[in-house]
Amino acid sequence: MTGVPLSHFLVLAVALFTIGAVGVVTRRNALVALMSLELMLNGVNVAFLAFARWRGDALANAAVFIVMAVAAAEVAVGLALVIALFRHNRSVDLDEATRMKG
């Protein structure tokens, strides 16, 4: 299982992370921004596992497991916030969510 060099996996990880980052800063739909956040976490996981495979570090898989749990918690809270935002503003546009007052 060594036909693919490490740099290929890392460039894929960087690509996923960058696409996610561009999505977070450019898209104003709160749902799509959250999805882009998931893409960024996915890219980080790819890099994590690639380094782990190259070092033969079995512990890194457990770390990725924890990252996934944190991502799931983040999505649950994030989507709850989106629902609260929609109920309040009748919109999920982040640019319109400029007031903190309830």
Binding site: N45, V46, L49, N61, F65, M68, A69, A71, A72, L79
Partner: peptide
């Protein structure tokens, strides 16, 4: 491909399953 079999299964279950259903 990175020999992380459990994480691959969890990726499908947690992300493609739970997170995507939530979205």
């Amino acid at each position: 491909m990175l020999s992380a079999h459990l994480v691959a299964v969890l990726q499908i279950l947690v992300y493609a399953g739970a997170v995507m259903v939530l979205f």
